[in-house]
């Protein structure tokens, strides 16, 4: 999109996203468009990673942003940054969709192939800085394999921690500590306060 302002990089735009979200709460369409442009690649990318189906991901992304539009007034800055807020909404909706497909017995047929090719040029290089992606990749690499596997199964495959423990034949306490320690490792590596 040509509207992207190169001076507002995601890491530094928390204050901007805050202000935008307050304007979205007053049903400011322009602010909503800017909020969308600053978060869309992260939201769509996460939803696509969980759902793997571009069409369903588009629908779910649309639902996420319509929820942003309707519930921006309910955003509580004390509970986290606007980015974490919208990513939490997105993850929740994607996981709900995966679970409803699973319960309808459709996951095998539609998710069987389990691969989505994302051409490099679709990655939002303008919004997500390459050095940030590199840093995240390095931090993910710094986890132990069992920690990374737990987070992958729970966060991207939409499994509950009980299902993760069944899948990995490990007890619940072990799975919970792997998840917790994995996230703590990431948090420290990424310098999240």
């Amino acid at each position: 999109m040509t509207t992207f302002d190169p001076t507002s990089k995601l890491r530094g735009v928390t204050a901007d996203l805050d202000a935008l979200l307050r304007r979205v709460a007053r049903q400011d369409v322009e602010a909503f468009a800017t909020f969308y442009d600053n978060t869309r690649a992260r939201v769509f990318g996460l939803v696509l990673r969980v759902l793997r189906d571009p069409g369903y991901s588009e629908e779910t992304t649309q639902e996420v942003y319509l929820q942003v539009w309707r519930s921006a007034a309910g955003y509580d800055p004390a509970a986290g940054t606007p980015l974490a807020w919208v990513m939490t909404l997105a993850h929740r909706r994607a996981v709900d969709r995966v679970r409803s497909e699973q319960s309808a017995g459709q996951r095998e047929s539609r998710y069987g192939a389990a691969t989505v090719e994302i051409p490099a040029d679709r990655v939002a290089e303008a919004v997500i800085q390459l050095d940030e992606q590199r840093q995240v990749a390095q931090c993910l690499d710094s986890l132990t394999d069992p920690q990374r596997e737990c987070i992958r199964l729970a966060y991207y495959e939409g499994l509950t921690y009980v299902q993760v423990s069944e899948r990995l034949s490990a007890n619940l306490a072990t799975i919970k500590s792997r998840m917790r320690d994995g996230i703590r490792g990431l948090r420290k590596c990424l310098g999240v306060s």
Partner: peptide, 30 residues
């Protein structure tokens, strides 16, 4: 809070551009 802030940062690694018409559709809807 800390888990969600961390995963918000991690979302850089899965970023992908949505189709352009999604923006038009959303703006039209709101």
């Amino acid at each position: 809070r800390a888990v969600r802030e961390t995963m918000a940062m991690v979302s850089a690694s899965t970023a992908a551009e949505p189709p352009g018409h999604l923006r038009d559709r959303l703006l039209a809807a709101v």
